[in-house]
């Protein structure tokens, strides 16, 4: 039962409160996941601390090498960012695909990551970009590769006295791109909200680097290292997409053993994966991408 609500004015104030009282505090950002959990009495803490008004957590900075997005940044703010729209296409598409305008106006990228849902749409592209989570507490900061942040279903490696501050990844250069494809639209279909995001780096028409991440095919979004290994250092022309998609399907089927969604998901991923692969290759070969990006 919540019996106290706090609107801290600064991140510092929020961290002070977490330091002294963290185990009793639940953070609320956009509330689009949490308010429903609160109503269903799923939250066993008694203090609610609102971080959605903290301007320090709402930013997108793009410097020479890196892009950093504050955890409190709303989906709409990411969608409206021109650089992300043009260059980080997969992340843009993922954010654009979330819920409805109302949900995108409130929901934050930090809430999406920290809620730990297997179907959190912004996470596969961030995993494929090999993003790093920046976590802060009173007098401490640490960075964790996003792929190591997930501990279990709905559970992330962020302590009671910490908050996710931002998420950071490299800018994409010539011959690099990121794609995103997803199945299933409304939240009612969350179980079928399979997604796939692929980062690719081409060199002389062969795959120098590839990172593949999927959503809703396990306890949390994850990298598909098996398939990555099959593709890296291969000539694009020699890759038989159908065979790789088939392998992906088998892999997923093995992972979902014993689940009712297994047969549907292991078939559906084939098409989603193939689409994501094709658009990643296309993106990396895109001339307009090249001319804008020195």
């Amino acid at each position: 039962m919540i019996n106290k609500c706090i609107n801290p004015k600064t991140v510092e104030e929020a961290l002070d409160i977490l330091e002294s009282n963290g185990k009793d505090v639940k953070l609320i950002a956009g509330g689009t996941d949490l308010v429903i959990d609160l109503r269903n009495n799923k939250i066993d803490k008694n203090i609610l601390m609102n971080i959605s008004k903290l301007k320090e957590l709402r930013f997108i900075t793009i410097d020479e090498n890196e892009i950093t997005i504050g955890s409190g940044t709303k989906f709409i703010e990411i969608i409206e960012n021109q650089h992300i729209k043009e260059k980080i296409v997969g992340l843009w598409k993922a954010c654009k695909s979330v819920g409805s305008p109302q949900i995108r106006n409130m929901g934050t990228i930090g809430g999406n990551i920290c809620n730990g849902s297997m179907a959190a749409d912004s996470v596969p592209p961030l995993l494929a970009l090999d993003a790093t989570a920046l976590i802060i507490g009173k007098n401490k900061t640490r960075s964790v590769p996003l792929r190591e942040l997930y501990l279990d279903k709905g559970k992330v490696d962020i302590a009671d006295d910490e908050i996710l501050y931002a998420i950071k990844f490299h800018r994409l250069r010539e011959k690099e791109s990121i794609s995103f494809e997803k199945l299933g639209l409304r939240k009612a279909l969350a179980i079928a909200r399979i997604s796939c995001s692929i980062y690719i780096n081409l060199e002389n028409n062969s795959i120098k680097d590839i990172k593949i991440a999927t959503g809703a095919l396990g306890k949390y979004p994850q990298r598909e290292n098996h398939i990555e290994k099959r593709l890296v250092n291969k000539k694009v022309d020699e890759i038989i997409l159908k065979d790789i998609a088939e392998e992906m399907s088998k892999h997923v089927s093995k992972r979902l053993k014993g689940r009712s969604s297994r047969s549907f998901k292991s078939i559906a991923i084939k098409g989603i994966f193939a689409e994501a692969y094709k658009s990643a290759i296309k993106g990396a070969n895109d001339e307009s991408h090249k001319s804008h990006n020195k």
Binding site: I28, L48, N50
Partner: peptide
């Protein structure tokens, strides 16, 4: 749906105390 600080939101997903200011 209501308009909050210039954007539409679902008022069933906003806690009242978050609307401060």
């Amino acid at each position: 749906t209501v308009i909050m600080d210039g954007r539409v939101v679902n008022s069933c997903l906003v806690m009242a105390f978050q609307a401060e200011g």
